[in-house]
Design a protein around this nucleic acid. Sequence first.
DNA 1: AAAAAAAATTGACTTAAGTCAATTTTCAAA
DNA 2: TTTGAAAATTGACTTAAGTCAATTTTTTTT
Lengths: 192, 192
Amino acid sequence: MFGSILEHIKEYIDLTDLEIEQFTSVLIVKKLRKRQFLIEEGDRVNYQYFVVSGCLKAYEVDGNGEEHIIQFARENWWISDFKAFFDQVQSRLNIDAIEESTVIGIEKNDLEELYLKVPKFERFFRIKLTRAYVALQNRILSSLEKTNEEQYLEFQQAYPNIEQRIPNYMIANYLGIKPESLSRIRKRLVSR
Amino acid sequence: MFGSILEHIKEYIDLTDLEIEQFTSVLIVKKLRKRQFLIEEGDRVNYQYFVVSGCLKAYEVDGNGEEHIIQFARENWWISDFKAFFDQVQSRLNIDAIEESTVIGIEKNDLEELYLKVPKFERFFRIKLTRAYVALQNRILSSLEKTNEEQYLEFQQAYPNIEQRIPNYMIANYLGIKPESLSRIRKRLVSR
DNA sequence: AAAAAAAATTGACTTAAGTCAATTTTCAAA
DNA sequence: TTTGAAAATTGACTTAAGTCAATTTTTTTT
């Protein structure tokens, strides 16, 4: 059950058997049916999650009741409302399963203890967060300098094969455009 | 000279005198005149920088020669091309001084050594990066759900008093709109 | 397999921001 | 302090994406 998360972590830090034991002993496994919530707006967020299988989305609902997707998370991605988790404030995001999914959760206090017992995990998350930060910078730069069509093509590169798993209207939403516009972009692309 | 960076770090971790010495001994100070480059596209990036005074901008130049500002950094902000720094690849970003500025730099190898000698610095940067990641998520969410006018008002909140220091066309650029559009937004705002 | 629901597409029209050009204001250098 | 350059503003027009409504296609449920 913990194979994939251990493989994932070993890409960044080496762990002894004891450290693996200290880590896995605090993990919990959660299975979600399609459309089931992992986190709802307003929740206290005591876990951050690693996706073992399936696919989830994190989104905010604005004042007009419109959803805005900030992240898709599939196999080997981390997801949570990190602001709410970190600062122990109410969640601003909703996170739910697009497909039936399995996630591994680690509780905030357990993680804090783990940091003290095995400081390498600080390193692990520092590295992951550096990469996540750079990825978001890239996404902002793309939105500043690329056409919607180019951003859609980049999305396909960044999330290969995900279009079979996610409806177009969610992709449009993630890209910040209307489903009608994405449909027109797709039409233009096939006719070339 | 190192007062402000030490104050900044002490907000997140406690340091002994020895650790302070180990840290400050590897710092370098750099003064920049207005418009001087800290990093240019294509450079190897061996430092990350903390802004002691002044203000800088990080931006990418696209295929049409247009600049796109991804970050302003004023007092107590960190700035670099973190992708280039971390992965030791050529810089994609330019960073230059909007005003005469003083920055403190730490070299990559020195930082790696520091992480080994004083693992608390892993924690420090993990926390900083978590916050930076959340800030970029917020920025993306704003771009998805807010009007340009609302984003401009948010910018004023997020960077109070910075409008006296940065020309409007740079703010427009950062917001992803044209100077003419920002001018019209500002006009609408005063007439209310 | 049929029926219902959800998603995607298409067309006609609207709108917010972009473009381009001219003018005014502000700032910086000589 | 003047002068030139840079920045900001304004108006007229264009354009890309949004809106709304109808229709078709796909998916899900019974």
